[in-house]
Design a protein around this nucleic acid. Structure first.
Length: 741
DNA sequence: TTCAGGATA
């Protein structure tokens, strides 16, 4: 083992003493002792993540309970726990441990527990008062992950509620929120203007330059690949030794840029054109999430002598990976972001400008080991006019269905007035409530049903969980468990960039579709899962069929986890049991209908379909589907929507009208404001019974399908939300005046 | 007639 490796693995005892945070040790411990809430801010390199929990541990905070520290990402939770266990001098999993999905490395002895924010949220479901913790530290709060945002709101409430003997905790829970950026005033105000503790960072200065190649009018994102290449080559010839990190948006852009870099570097011999005589060549390396890990090794190794390394990466290099030796940054100024569009009720992957704080974080990647330089391809004007101060937090961009169910299960009934640090748009919350009502997770008054309590246990989207539970009640969970697992991992079908290989892959995939023996994409997924698992060499089977082995391996893991959860729940006495008389194919598709009936579409003109969710969007079946170019379809359900050149639906299954017709009224009959439980105390059981009787009568009156479709479309247009609110308020007022019995 | 940024339980 060489020296470099050794120094990476040993913990130098003086290092932690030398960190910027160490001189604030006593003050920090005191601040936690006297305040229920504390905000700690400090740049990367301040040592707050590794040191603060240790200070609290040595100060005795671990005597009354654990010190829990959350991270938004798995790797961070694991590596920080490793580091801290070495510093304390215990084996990992004893006094210092971690817990992430599929990997619990903690024990009864564990006092400092690092975990993902999602893990802590799960723990709160089982133990709402967090009786096993004395301190909870939410780290990286500035990243504003969905789970951290929910935890912020929950912890704000938990600590303010009176606690004592009966609640199972002797001392009040302490909450520390750690954030890197300067937006700490908002966090402090959120927690009743709690104190903010600032720790100076230890990073090197990074000079920033706007190259001005992209201005506010350059909305066409294809330009930035070319500009980024130009700037990277310019700096290669004009700057002193040091590696380059280029930020781009995605795999295809990165591959394009790498091709161009190679081409140009060959056309002009850059080895003889560089300012620094110690730099001879350029090593170009792509880096993105779905890249095979064996190809990533070179990225983290120092380049050969005389060679400058140029890593072309996605945001993965800004968030979760650190590459040593980077001195130069080339920032495209863009990122791909999944945004929920509630007007069409779909998620759209968009290329958007990054925020100023993200740009600063990207620049900071050049100042980890020495002073660096950041080249931004956009103009100062672009910075000022197009880039927001902070990123829109995840909670305001994504589907809230699963999160709202979690809140409801934690007795947060009025989910609209929950203390959000940044409130999601009301229509997003209402849409989530509606979806939960549609899959029977909550009742008309917004209360969690027995089914909803079962559903919250699964780490899946509620619609998929509903289909799984339906199958379980019918005793055919073996059909849905693999499907649920396959749909919760990344796409398993490989689509290579090269034309020849692409055709090869397509032939293999078509073969798999035919072998599944049915025109149903869900059945294709089930077939792939079963065939691969049954083969002698699953990894070779994947290679032969152009299937992502990494994705399938993780699907096997997820399936096992889902099966364990289901087994546990099935032991409950009141687990639902149903019977069904029909073919296996029909059984399978009817289970899917139960979960996905909100995603139902009907044939429209030609090969287009029209969604029946009230938006009435025109959609196309994606060319990768088994149902693509099928002419005999009428009603279909689908798993998700992809908006690119057209609105595509993927993972499709044909259904019969009789299977969905009884479910369809549920798509439009409900008043979403009632579900939010704004006026829980005012809605009586009798009122609900009357309302339901009225709805049944209305349903019976709907004679033809055509009729109900028209009604649905009318009721669910853009004004439906305001109308619903008006109806609700009117009823409330009438009730107050005694008009309604 | 196609194109998946990054996470998470």
């Amino acid at each position: 083992m060489d020296k470099r490796n050794k120094s990476l693995n040993t913990v130098d005892s003086w290092a932690s003493e030398n960190l910027p945070i160490s001189q604030h040790k006593e003050k920090l411990v005191h601040a936690v002792r006297v305040n229920p809430f504390l905000v700690v801010t400090g740049e990367t390199g301040s040592g707050k993540t590794t040191q603060l929990p240790q200070y609290l541990y040595h100060a005795g905070f671990g005597k009354d309970g654990k010190i829990g520290v959350t991270q938004p990402r798995r790797v961070a939770a694991i590596t920080v726990a490793q580091r801290v266990s070495q510093e304390i001098g215990c084996s990992l999993g004893r006094e210092v441990g971690y817990q992430v999905r599929f990997d619990d490395c903690s024990s009864e002895d564990t006092v400092i527990k690092y975990m993902t924010d999602g893990c802590l949220l799960r723990e709160i479901l089982a133990d709402p008062r967090l009786t096993r913790y004395s301190v909870v530290v939410l780290d990286e709060a500035h990243e504003r992950s969905l789970n951290t945002d929910i935890l912020l709101g929950l912890l704000k409430r938990k600590v303010l509620q009176p606690q004592g003997g009966s609640s199972g905790r002797s001392t009040p829970l302490k909450v520390v929120v750690m954030s890197a950026t300067l937006d700490t005033d908002k966090l402090s105000a959120f927690f009743g203007h709690c104190p903010v503790f600032t720790i100076p960072g230890r990073t090197f200065p990074v000079s920033e330059r706007f190259c001005g190649l992209i201005g506010p009018k350059d909305t066409d994102s294809t330009v930035y690949v070319k500009e980024v290449v130009k700037v990277a080559l310019d700096l290669h010839t004009s700057e002193m030794a040091g590696d380059i990190l280029v930020f781009l948006t995605g795999q295809s852009e990165i591959e394009k840029a790498c091709d161009m870099l190679y081409e140009k570097a060959e056309a002009v011999d850059y080895r003889y054109d560089v300012r620094d005589s110690s730099v001879e060549g350029l090593l170009i390396l792509p880096l993105y999430g779905s890249m095979p890990t064996d190809q990533q090794r070179q990225i983290f190794e120092p380049p050969p002598k005389g060679v400058r390394k140029c890593v072309v990466a996605t945001n993965i290099a800004a968030m979760s990976l650190t590459i040593n030796g980077i001195r130069y940054i080339v920032d495209s100024g863009f990122v791909k972001q999944l945004n929920h569009n509630s007007r069409v009720g779909m998620d759209i992957l968009e290329v958007v400008p990054i925020s100023k704080s993200e740009a600063q974080q990207r620049a900071g990647r050049a100042g980890r080991t020495s002073a660096g330089k950041c080249f931004r391809i956009y103009s100062k004007e672009f910075w000022e006019k197009c880039m927001p101060e902070y990123m829109v937090p995840e909670i305001q961009r994504t589907s809230l269905t699963a999160v709202i169910l979690t809140l409801k299960c934690l007795s947060v009934h009025d989910v609209i007035r929950f203390p959000y640090l940044d409130r999601p748009e009301e229509r997003f919350i209402l849409a989530a409530l509606k979806q939960l009502y549609q899959c029977d997770a909550i009742d008309r008054r917004g209360h969690v049903t027995r089914l909803g309590r079962l559903m919250v246990e699964f780490p899946l989207a509620p619609g998929l969980t509903r289909a799984l539970l339906k199958a379980a009640s019918l005793g055919c969970e073996d059909l849905l468990l693999p499907v649920a697992a396959m749909l919760s991992v990344e796409n398993i079908f490989i689509r290579p960039g090269q034309q020849e290989k692409q055709q090869d892959a397509e032939t293999e995939h078509r073969q798999l579709i035919e072998e599944s023996g049915s025109c149903n994409d869900f059945a294709v997924l089930l077939g792939v899962f079963e065939k691969c698992r049954a083969s002698d060499s699953p990894s070779a089977w994947c290679r032969d069929h152009w299937i992502h082995w990494r994705a399938l391996k993780s699907a096997f893991n997820v399936e096992t986890q889902l099966r364990e959860i289901l087994l546990r729940l099935k032991q409950q006495r009141d687990f639902p049991v149903e019977t069904f008389d029909g073919s296996r194919s029909e059984l399978f598709r009817r289970c899917l209908c139960t979960g996905y009936f909100a995603n139902v579409a009907r044939r429209s003109v030609g090969r287009t379909f029209c969604t029946m969710d009230g938006h009435g969007s025109v959609v196309h079946i994606h060319p990768s589907s088994a149902l693509f170019e099928q002419d005999q379809l009428d009603w279909i359900i689908f798993h998700d929507v992809l908006v690119t050149s057209r609105v595509y639906i993927r993972t499709v299954c044909p259904v019969r009208y009789e299977w969905v017709k009884d479910l369809l009224p549920k798509l439009h009959e409900v008043d979403a404001y009632e579900l939010s439980n704004v006026a829980r105390e005012e809605v009586t059981d009798e009122e609900v019974a009357k309302w339901e009787a009225k709805e049944t009568a209305k349903r019976q009156a709907e004679v033809s399908a055509e009729d109900s479709l028209k009604k649905m479309e009318r009721r669910n247009d853009d004004t439906s939300v305001s109308e619903a609110r008006a109806r609700y308020l009117q009823r409330k007022q009438e009730k107050r005046q005694g008009k309604v019995p």
